[in-house]
């Protein structure tokens, strides 16, 4: 019994609370399980829905930018090029928007029960990751169809790209989640922010085709660019732009740290505000 001593005090110093998160790992699992289960129970097409969305976009962009306005993507076929960008972008955008909305959606639970609040945006991101895995399968199917050459070490580049997206998505998502609790009108800016980020990401065009160097490195602040750069690195003979990746990595670390810090700092008062 002596193991469970809780000391309740006014919040003062900052901590990550990793130990507590570990104690609550089952709740993490249950929230994620619930969202995935409900999501695929509610939609008629089930899992198919997660696949149709990136596929539809891929067909549209391929028709527009590989047939009508030709975008040069080097040795990599345009459908593969755009699909790789789309699935990564979808992971980022659903991480940010779902994590950003998550605290408000769970306001009822937050006001009634204590648990480490990070679980809520965290599980929103795991749900997005689940959808991404479906998209990734489709991506490999198309790689096979288009006879896309791959190396065994491509796996590490894929993983690095996904990790950047997850870190940046988690940072931005938790930051927005905390802001949303405090300022309820902030959520209206999220779709606009995401749209700006989409067109600044190298989803439908390669970043190296941007002529002005200053613009290219400005766009590189968007972490999605570095993630896509790494993800596509082994798929074509185009050399990796290390500057883009360094800028992207720096901003990823900053976004992650700021988001996590702001969330942890304000989470004690969520129940009073929500």
């Amino acid at each position: 019994m002596e193991k469970f001593i809780t000391h309740i005090q006014p919040p003062n110093r900052f901590s990550l609370g990793l130990k507590e998160l570990w104690q609550y790992r089952e709740l993490f699992y249950f929230f994620t399980w619930r969202d995935i289960k409900v999501k695929y129970k509610q939609t008629y097409l089930g899992i198919l829905w997660a696949l149709l969305q990136p596929l539809g976009m891929m067909v549209l962009f391929t028709l527009l930018f590989s047939k009508t306005w030709k975008i040069d993507t080097g040795t990599i076929a345009y459908p593969i090029f755009v699909l790789s960008g789309l699935i990564l972008w979808n992971l980022f955008s659903s991480s940010v928007s779902h994590a950003g909305e998550s605290m408000i959606q769970h306001a009822n639970i937050i006001k009634k029960i204590y648990f480490p609040r990070l679980i809520v945006p965290g599980s929103a991101i795991l749900v997005a990751l689940f959808d991404f895995m479906m998209g990734l399968i489709i991506f490999f199917v198309f790689c096979f169809i288009y006879k896309q050459p791959m190396h065994w070490y491509s796996v590490f580049y894929f993983a690095a790209g996904i990790l950047i997206i997850l870190l940046a998505g988690f940072g931005a998502g938790t930051f927005l989640a905390a802001l949303n609790v405090k300022y309820r009108d902030f959520r209206y800016t999220i779709p606009f922010l995401l749209q700006v980020l989409f067109f600044s990401s190298q989803v439908i065009y390669p970043l190296y085709s941007v002529q002005q160097t200053w613009l290219k490195y400005l766009l590189a602040i968007n972490p999605v660019n570095a993630a896509i750069e790494l993800f596509r690195a082994t798929l074509s003979n185009q050399a990796i732009d290390t500057t883009t990746i360094s800028i992207g990595l720096t901003s990823t670390v900053i976004i992650f740290a700021v988001g996590l810090y702001y969330f942890r700092k304000t989470e004690a008062y969520f129940a009073d505000l929500a």
């Binding site: 019994m1 309740i8 006014p10 029960i113 204590y114 008062y269």
Partner: peptide, 14 residues
């Protein structure tokens, strides 16, 4: 139950 923090004082729960 730790849903909201106190402004002053402390509590120890065993």
């Amino acid at each position: 139950s730790r849903i909201t923090p106190p402004t002053t004082g402390e509590a120890i729960i065993r």
